[in-house]
Design a binder for these strands. Structure first.
Length: 309
DNA sequence: CGAATTTGACCTGC
DNA sequence: GCAGGTCAAATTCG
């Protein structure tokens, strides 16, 4: 009875998170589209207003995804006291606001002076991908280890803001396969830091040639594959992190949620992509993919005709 | 030269 | 006792 109530509540929270993520993504799209419209017709500089707003919206989208993924990967409805959770949702019946409740639980990971304490096995979530996941946070590598019966070493990362903001988020990355490359990223804890390295300036900057794309697929590219690639926008990311992308795994996106046909897509877009292989724009029923575009290029297209409207 | 990464030693939990 | 996780000095990078 109680468990059923908690399940319903979890479902409700996940639904709210997804809706919030969708709405925020739509707001972001509107900001970007309006920015493009403005650039097409005016030359005024509104970036001082638009960029902080867009950055905030991107952070909210990422947070929604993270919260939902956490709930998806936590099967238990009732949490033991020993279990270290990134979010205090023992009392799910109260349906707490996820983003406001994670700080204390994360402190469980805190290393005490003189004798460090190992974290418990409370995996927040785990993800296999063809390259390392760029998740919008800054990570600092603090160790690596050869693991028994594993072919490749495991790398240990903690949030770059561990000391500054007492953020206890950590992740482990282990290569599990070479061909095709496959990495397993395991996240522990939850970010309570306020800072994200996600800099969407390059996305909003019409003449910016830095490479950044929003990837809705699971096929990522590594920096090594494009050695001439460079970007200053993400210079604070860990050196071992791959190409600077917003990787939003396709399987984590519900249909109909990113771009609805109600959006003002009638304008002509001028998009610039560097080393873009896959740029997928989702409509409610269709997608457009650009494959194997290796050179920096400018794509001039009418979105309606692209979508067959 | 400061910041980030590497690496070997040390510590903890099983 | 061992495997895995963390620390911190050394090294590398930008």
């Amino acid at each position: 009875m109680e468990n059923r109530h908690l399940s319903n509540c979890r479902k409700q929270i996940m639904e709210q998170e997804l809706i919030r993520g969708r709405d925020t993504a739509n707001q972001l799209l509107e900001v970007i589209v309006n920015k493009l419209n403005i650039n097409l017709h005016h030359h005024g500089d509104l970036e001082g207003l638009i960029i902080p707003l867009a950055q905030d919206l991107v952070n909210k989208v990422l947070r929604s995804f993270t919260n939902t993924l956490f709930l998806l990967n936590t099967n238990n409805d009732v949490f033991s006291d020993e279990e270290v959770l990134p979010i205090t949702i023992k009392d799910l019946s109260k349906c707490p606001k996820l983003e406001e409740t994670d700080h204390e639980a994360c402190k469980t990971f805190k290393v005490q002076r003189g004798c460090y304490k190992r974290k418990s096995n409370a995996i927040t979530w785990e993800k296999d991908s063809s390259i390392l996941i760029e998740d919008g946070y800054e990570w600092r590598k603090y160790g690596q280890k050869k693991i028994m019966n594993a072919k490749y070493i495991r790398s240990y990362y903690r949030c770059s803001y561990k000391n500054e903001q007492d953020c206890a988020a950590m992740k482990q990355v282990q290569r599990i396969q070479v061909d095709p490359p496959l990495y397993r990223t395991t996240y522990y804890g939850h970010h309570n830091c306020k800072t994200s390295n996600l800099d969407i300036t390059s996305l909003l900057e019409p003449n910016n040639t830095s490479s950044m794309f929003i990837n809705f697929n699971d096929s990522f590219q590594t920096k090594e594959q494009y050695p001439s690639f460079s970007s200053s926008s993400f210079s604070k990311s860990t050196k071992q992190e791959p190409i600077e992308v917003i990787n939003i795994p396709y399987d984590h996106i519900a249909e109909n949620q990113l771009i609805s046909l109600d959006y003002p897509l009638s304008c002509d877009y001028e998009l610039e992509f560097d080393y873009l292989r896959h740029a997928t724009m989702l409509s409610s029923t269709q997608s457009v993919e650009f494959h194997d575009v290796y050179e920096p290029c400018s794509l001039d297209f009418d979105s309606k005709s692209c979508f067959g409207l």
